[in-house]
Design a protein around this nucleic acid. Structure first.
Length: 301
DNA sequence: GCATGTCAAGTTGTG
DNA sequence: CACAACTTGACATGC
C-alpha cells in the first residue's frame, strides 16, 4: 500500500486572511534606511507566522509544506545571528522544527549554480541561507528536507553547464550538499529529467519530478519513464511537484506555463510511494478540494 | 482603506 | 523585443 502525503507551497490563504504571513519584506530603499533592525523585526513576525502555519497544517492532517524563501528580508546582506532578535527567532525555529511535518524549500530562479562570477557568488550565499534555516530548525541534513532548485541556464552548451553545476556544487557546505535537489524545467531549451540524470551521475543529486513541467517539455520520455527515472535517484521518499494548467482549465489567454488555481486531474504515481507538493494558486484550499474530490488515497497507479 | 506605480537577484521564450 | 513566468505578489505612497 502506498502511503502518500500531499502538501502545498509557502502561503496559507486562510491564515493570510488574518494577517498571518511569512513573507513580510521591504524594498531596497527601506532596507537602506532601516537596515538589519527592521529585517530582524519582520523576520521575527515571519517565523512566528511560520510556526502558526505549520501547527495549523498538523492540526489539519497536512504533513508536507514548502517554506517561503522570504523569511529573512535582505538576508544576503548580513549574518542571521547579527539580527537583534536572533535568539528569539532561533528558539521559535527550533520549536517549529520539532513539529511532525516534512518541510522543504524552493529558492528563487535567481539561483544559478551553473552560473559564473557574481551570479554564482550570490547563488551560493542565498542557498546557504536556506540551509542555515534548516540547521536552525534542527533538521538533520538530508534530502528529506530538500532545498530544490533548477539548473535553469544553458549558457550555450548544456553539457558544459551541467559539468559546471557539478563543479560548483562542491563549493557548497556539507549540509547544503546533502539537501540539494534539482527539478526538471518547463522551457524547451532547458533540462528534462533524462538530461538531469547526467548531473545525477556526476553528483548524486536527486531529481524532483514536476509533472506539469514534463508535460510542457517532455523530451523523449513518457511521463511514466520520466517519473521512474527521477524516482530512482532518491535516497529517501521522493517529493515531487504537481500542478494543472491555468490555460487549459481556467483562462485560455494564460501563458502555457502558468499554474492553475486548483488541481483538476487525479495524480498518477505508477505504484510508487512519493510525497507531492501541489503548486496551485489556491494553496491549502486547492489541496483540501483535491483530497475531497479524489479521496485520501488520491492517486491512481 | 484602497488604488496605483514600483519593486534585488537570472534566464528563457512566449505573446 | 518587452515582459511574464518561474519560488509566492507585496511594498510604499498618496488620495
Amino acid at each position: 500500500m502506498t502511503v502518500m502525503n500531499f502538501g502545498y507551497a509557502c502561503i496559507n490563504l486562510c491564515l493570510a486572511n488574518e494577517g498571518i504571513v511569512t513573507n513580510k519584506g521591504m524594498i531596497r530603499r527601506t532596507f537602506l534606511e532601516r537596515g538589519i533592525q527592521y529585517s530582524s523585526q519582520l523576520a521575527l513576525q515571519n517565523v512566528l507566522a511560520l510556526i502558526k502555519i505549520l501547527e495549523w497544517n498538523v492540526t489539519q492532517g497536512i504533513s508536507v509544506f514548502r517554506i517561503t524563501s522570504d523569511l529573512f528580508p535582505w538576508a544576503s546582506e548580513y549574518k542571521l545571528k547579527e539580527m537583534p532578535d536572533f535568539n528569539e527567532i532561533r528558539n521559535i525555529l527550533e520549536e517549529a522544527g520539532k513539529l511532525p511535518i516534512r518541510v522543504s524549500n524552493h529558492p528563487g530562479p535567481f539561483n544559478k549554480l551553473a552560473g559564473t562570477g557574481n551570479t554564482l557568488k550570490n547563488t551560493i550565499t542565498d542557498l546557504e541561507i536556506h540551509s542555515e534555516l534548516f540547521d536552525l530548525m534542527g533538521l538533520n541534513p538530508s534530502h528529506w528536507n530538500k532545498i530544490n532548485i533548477h539548473v535553469g541556464g544553458v549558457y550555450g552548451n548544456k553539457e558544459e553547464a551541467l559539468k559546471r553545476f557539478a563543479q560548483n556544487f562542491k563549493l557548497l557546505s556539507e549540509n547544503l550538499q546533502k539537501r540539494i535537489t534539482v527539478e526538471n524545467d518547463d522551457k524547451k531549451g532547458l533540462y528534462t529529467v533524462s538530461e538531469l540524470k547526467i548531473l545525477y551521475e556526476l553528483s548524486s543529486i536527486p531529481i524532483v519530478f514536476d509533472y506539469f513541467h514534463h508535460k510542457l517539455h517532455p523530451g523523449l520520455q513518457t511521463e511514466e519513464e520520466a517519473f521512474i527515472a527521477a524516482y530512482e535517484t532518491w535516497d529517501v521518499k521522493p517529493m515531487f511537484h504537481y500542478s494543472s494548467s491555468r490555460r487549459e482549465n481556467e483562462d485560455p489567454t494564460a501563458r502555457r506555463e502558468a499554474h492553475a488555481d486548483y488541481v483538476y486531474e487525479r495524480i498518477t504515481t505508477y505504484g510508487k510511494d512519493v510525497d507531492i507538493i501541489l503548486e496551485a494558486k489556491m494553496k491549502e484550499k486547492a489541496l483540501m478540494k483535491y483530497l475531497k474530490e479524489f479521496g485520501a488515497m488520491a492517486v491512481s497507479n
